[in-house]
Write a protein that binds this DNA or RNA. Structure first.
Lengths: 170, 170
DNA sequence: AAATGTTATCTTGAATTCAAGCTAAATGCG
DNA sequence: CGCATTTAGCTTGAATTCAAGATAACATTT
C-alpha cells in the first residue's frame, strides 16, 4: 500500500508540497485544508434536506433566524444582515425573494419610519417548523458516523478555534 | 453587543432554539455551526494575504494546484476542476481570466486533440512561488493563537470527520 | 467504415453575492 | 430651530458560480 492511497485528498496535497517545496513547513494546511473541505462537504449534505422542503440554504437560514427569535417572529433587516454576515444589498434581494414566495411579510416600524420590519408569515412559520425538524435529524444522522466521544472532542476544539478567530478577539 | 456573556455566536443560537423548540436536540448545530463559521472566518483571513499578491482565493488555488503538480507544471482542465470541486463551466471562466493575466498558457495536447492543457507561465510560476511562502506563514500565524496540542488534536479530529464525509465513503 | 456511446471542453443564462454609492429618516449640537 | 452626522435600507453594476446543453474528438462495437 502506498501512502497516497491511505490518506485523504488533503494528505495528497501535503505530499505534493513536501516534494516540491521541502523548505516550507506546510503542516497548517492539514488543519485548514481539512476544515475547508469538511465545511464544503457538510454544506452539500445539508442542502439535500433543504431541497426536500423547497428551500435553499440561505432561505432556510433566513426563516430559521426569524423563527428562533421567538414571537412575534419579527426582526429589522439590519439585525438580520448583521447576524448573518451578509451585506445590506444581499439582504434586500433575499427579502424580495422571500416576500414573493409568501414566507415573510413586511411591516412599517412604529418607532423608526426608516425601517420596515420583517415578519414570518403563517406559511413561513409552518414551513420552517417542519424543515428545522428534518434539518436537525439530518445533522444527527451525519454525525452518527463518528463515535460520540469524537464528536464531543471536535466540538470543544472548534469552540477554541472559533474563539481565536472571532473578529473582536484580534 | 457581541462581546457580552460567556459563549460565542453559536451558543446564542443554541440558546434560542432551546427556548423556542425544547423538543429538539439541536446539539449537532454546535459542531456544524462552529465549523461553518470557522471556515468563513479563516477564508477571510487567508484572503488578506492573497490580496497582497494581487490574487483572489481561487486564483491562488489554481496557481498552487499547477505549481505543486511539479514540472512541467501542466495539467488538463478536467484534472483541475475535478480536484478543485468546481464545474467545467467555472473552469473555463477561470482559465480565461488567468490566461488574460498572463499567469498560464494553453497548449494543445498531443495525445488528445479535445484537450488543451494548462501550464504555468514563468510569470505565474514566479508569483505563486512567492505567494505560497506568504500564505504558509500566514497560516502559521493564525494557528499560533492556539496551543500546539490543541492544533494537533483538532487536526486529528477533522481528519476523522473528513473521512466520514468524503463522497466515496457513503 | 459506420453507428453508437463516452469524454473533454465550452457556451449560455440564471442565481447569488458584494462593494460602492444613493435616499430618507433620525439624532446631536450649537 | 438649522445644519451636520449617523443610521436604515435600497439600487446598481460587476464578479463568481452552477446547471443544462452544445460541440468536437475519441473509443467501441457492429
Amino acid at each position: 500500500m502506498t501512502k497516497s492511497e491511505n490518506g485523504d485528498a488533503v494528505d495528497r496535497i501535503l505530499e505534493q508540497w513536501a516534494r516540491e517545496r521541502p523548505d516550507l513547513d506546510v503542516s497548517p494546511m492539514g488543519l485548514i485544508g481539512r476544515l475547508g473541505r469538511c465545511a464544503a462537504l457538510l454544506e452539500h449534505r445539508l442542502d439535500v434536506v433543504f431541497q426536500q422542503y423547497g428551500l435553499s440554504a440561505w432561505e432556510f437560514d433566513m426563516l430559521a433566524t426569524l423563527r428562533r427569535a421567538g414571537a412575534p417572529y419579527r426582526l429589522a433587516p439590519t439585525e438580520l444582515f448583521s447576524t448573518m454576515m451578509v451585506t445590506s444589498g444581499t439582504m434586500t434581494h433575499r427579502l424580495k425573494v422571500l416576500e414573493g414566495k409568501g414566507w415573510i411579510v413586511r411591516e412599517a416600524c412604529s418607532q423608526d419610519a426608516r425601517s420596515t420590519l420583517v415578519r414570518l408569515s403563517d406559511a413561513g412559520f409552518a414551513l420552517i417548523e417542519r424543515a428545522v425538524e428534518a434539518h436537525v435529524a439530518n445533522e444527527h444522522a451525519i454525525l452518527s458516523a463518528l463515535p460520540a466521544r469524537s464528536v464531543e472532542a471536535l466540538q470543544k476544539r472548534l469552540a477554541e478555534l472559533l474563539a481565536a478567530l472571532e473578529p473582536e478577539n484580534h
